[in-house]
Design a protein around this nucleic acid. Sequence first.
DNA 1: TGACATTGTGTGCGTCACGCATATATTCCA
DNA 2: TGGAATATATGCGTGACGCACACAATGTCA
Lengths: 119, 119
Amino acid sequence: MTIERDAAALLPLPEVTFHVLVALADGERHGYAILQDVEARTDGAVRLSAGTLYRAIHRMLEQGLVVESDDRPARSEDDERRRYYRITVLGAAAVRAESARLSRLVELARAKGLAPRRS
Amino acid sequence: MTIERDAAALLPLPEVTFHVLVALADGERHGYAILQDVEARTDGAVRLSAGTLYRAIHRMLEQGLVVESDDRPARSEDDERRRYYRITVLGAAAVRAESARLSRLVELARAKGLAPRRS
DNA sequence: TGACATTGTGTGCGTCACGCATATATTCCA
DNA sequence: TGGAATATATGCGTGACGCACACAATGTCA
């Protein structure tokens, strides 16, 4: 309950924040990997600018949407420069709330015949 | 085709612009009526601030998303202060494109189990 | 009639999130 | 060995936002 209200207070989420949370939903990733993941999942349609991404991550750390992780991959596959992030319970609640908000926006347009038919 | 590309170049639409276009989709309205219409259709969840609304309308006029209308209601139901607006072909294309974009965002979240089930 | 809320449009101001450019260092690979 | 890719970060300008405020006409009610 409190989590849901805390999440609701953060809406609307900035676009880049939404993408970062979706990218982290199924596992930890470092910044640059988030960049590539978003681009791949959207077939190149969404390309985050690096500057905005890293600033968004800093904001998200302060807001408690993500935490930095100490888990590092095997030394042979690691890169010291990387900083890994994990989504928090609040982060998951926030992206769910934002998804619902966006879904309602689409419904508004759909009611006027302005949205694609339900896929 | 050209219209679709012109509309695509305006994405993402500012949130208030999206709401104004949806409000105008089924008929002409003046600014203050748009304010009330959005609030009513969203059950009070979305309340546009007047300042942002009127500035958005000015932007939209310059971009050709809406045009000011000379049609006035019967004098008995009119109010000289009002300024009426009509959505353009470009405006309709833009809100359709934005709806599709938002719909794709929801799909991204849905693929990770973070969006409400299809309503 | 006088007071006050509502309707209606508009500007001033500060802030946040953004893209683009740039900085800096490391790693990969031909 | 030199250039592309990887990786993170800051500088700067802009656009859209909310809130406060301004100002006038209209409606309501004591």
